[in-house]
Design a protein around this nucleic acid. Structure first.
Lengths: 334, 334
DNA sequence: GCAAAATATGTTAGCGCTGAGATAACGAAT
DNA sequence: ATTCGTTATCTCAGCGCTAACATATTTTGC
């Protein structure tokens, strides 16, 4: 081996004076190996600084230790948190995640998926149920395990892990009604791309209508959710409907923005206007008044998905739905 | 091909009536191909739903279209933002990122790096200069390109992209001095793991001492930075040193927490106590008073790193340092 | 009209590893 | 002594693809 050649199994085998296959078995802890042989091989590996070539391994064994992960975005803190859960669950395994970002675009998801599948991953983790037909077909045809995250309000391809956003919206409505609020407004963001926000909205409306109530005003920002959008959109909403007593936001980012608007405009939060979010982000809980919201266990969703997927290398007969639930965080803003 | 067999180059070649190599050349757009042949091959690919096996490709060509990315954490929004920049720059290429999270642990970084190198990535992007000797050796021995992000206050292995944190700290000090503040406090987080926060602190102290000033009080939270930590730690600082007129925080998360403390405690921000952060996060800019801080272009850092790395497949003779700079954001809190 | 160049395609030998089966060495059971 | 089972190791084909080279086939220049 010259100085600049990368060592391979062959080099290790030669140095240890055994066959390549024996080295391979030592590395993978497979089959019986005499202690003496093992230590000789391990020493050779160390000496050469050998790192196995996984491309070769994956080719030979037709299967890799990769998990494909498709996330809609990284700018919404929610998804990095899911990713953290995924990483945490993978940390004790030999699997590696391979992350793609779709920007909420089903066609881009399809493209990235096909690049991911080219690596023969053991499983694919994706978000929600909005896939193109081609995506669905690719996932069905390849025999990889598939987890669809965040949402459980539809039938999964294989495993779904998340919470019922409709129920979360409903619970929000009930909570506010029980607290005595009656004149409701809604501040949202562009939900063409965000099915889950729409589901929460539906659940909310259902809770209201069951009590003979309805949203008196509604304002949706035409773009992704952000604190700034929440601040400005609440201002617009109040300009149109100054007499509402509670505002439900599409999520915490928007709600925190709403809180800042109230602060700047001198509106007494809760007493004059209740604010309610969704997600239970840290930032909402450190406001001078902790935000009333719904906790969606993002880390748990990521972690659970990995655990479910690794339970079995093949798809079970029955589709699996794991409800990671949600909790109302009472806070002080509603 | 039976129904459940995954199609390979061979299947495509047979169906199109050409050699495997021709199919391969069509896929990779390499070498001359007659239009008629190309369309026949493309049609066969579509018909079969063929997806190339990258493990095989990477093995045969000894080089993959992968970029290894090592980030210290995902809970600090800063790193997802860097990752966004990386993704953005990769979006127009055939490269895929493969992300590992080190939890600010150099040994974990070393482990993950060796798993990453097993995939023969074209390049590795990592954070900062704190690596183990073994990590450094692996990176030097493998001929992959290496980018070290965020920081440019040391000598890189190959490329460094980031900003001078010492200068940023210095600029912070100068700015506050020019604004007339004289009685300085500092609120930080655990910087054993955060070399860059320490460098900013050094720069700040230097600016102060050049003007015959010094930090009158300093309080460091023993843990990672967070809004809550910032709020509580500022409270502690002020209990010890009630007479300071400006506080520099280790970053925006901490500073936003500090702002909330002032809000709750009725302290007049800026007039009674100036607040200054670092990073220029969105959350700081939507506070009722926009946070005075330093913008660190995270997205640009990620994007630039990828661009630099893809300029050439081999390491240039000269180490490259790219300064993505920083700007003072004046804000209203200092 | 013919050599040289340009274009289009085929042939072949691996890349580094793993799986299946073969082989060897040795003790225990018949 | 022979058979059997166990343990430890080896041999070898081949995963799906690409690089290098070989082989047509066409075009171009003179």
């Amino acid at each position: 081996m010259t100085q600049y050649e990368v060592p391979t199994l062959t080099h290790v085998a030669k140095l240890a004076g055994v066959s390549e296959n024996t080295v391979s078995r030592v590395i993978r802890n497979k089959g019986p190996i005499a202690d003496e042989t093992r230590s000789r091989v391990v020493k050779a590996i160390d000496t050469l600084g050998y790192v196995p070539n996984r491309a070769a391994g994956s080719l030979a064994s037709s299967g890799s230790l990769l998990i494909g992960v498709l996330l809609p975005s990284l700018s919404n803190i929610v998804f990095p948190e899911v990713l953290q859960g995924i990483h945490a669950a993978l940390a004790t395994t030999a699997y590696q995640p391979m992350v793609g970002v779709t920007n909420y675009d089903a066609n881009k998801e399809q493209d990235i998926l096909s690049s991911l599948l080219a690596w023969q991953p053991a499983a694919v983790i994706t978000t929600g149920f909005d896939h193109t037909d081609a995506t669905r077909r690719m996932l069905s045809n390849s025999r990889v395990r598939v987890a669809e995250l965040m949402d459980i309000d539809a039938d999964p391809i294989d495993v779904a892990v998340g919470l019922s956003h409709r129920q979360a919206g409903y619970a929000t409505g009930r909570h506010l009604i029980e607290r005595g609020y009656r004149r409701f407004g809604y501040v949202g963001h562009d939900w063409v791309a965000d099915r889950r926000a729409r589901l929460r909205h539906e659940g909310l409306c259902q809770a209201l209508s069951e009590t003979g109530l309805a949203l008196l005003a509604e304002e949706r920002f035409d773009g992704p959710s952000s604190t700034m959008a929440g601040r400005d959109t609440l201002a617009t909403l109040l300009a149109h409907a100054p007499d509402i007593d509670a505002v439900v936001f599409s999520n915490d980012d928007m709600a925190v923005g709403g809180f800042f608007h109230c602060l700047a405009a001198g509106i007494a939060v809760r007493d004059r206007l209740a604010l309610f979010g969704f997600n239970g982000l840290d930032i909402g809980q450190v406001l001078p008044m902790p935000l009333s919201t719904v906790r969606s266990n993002r880390f748990l969703i990521g972690k659970t998905a990995v655990e479910k997927l690794l339970e079995s290398p093949t798809r079970p007969e029955e589709r699996v739905v794991v409800d990671t639930g949600f909790d109302i965080i009472e806070g002080e803003t509603a």
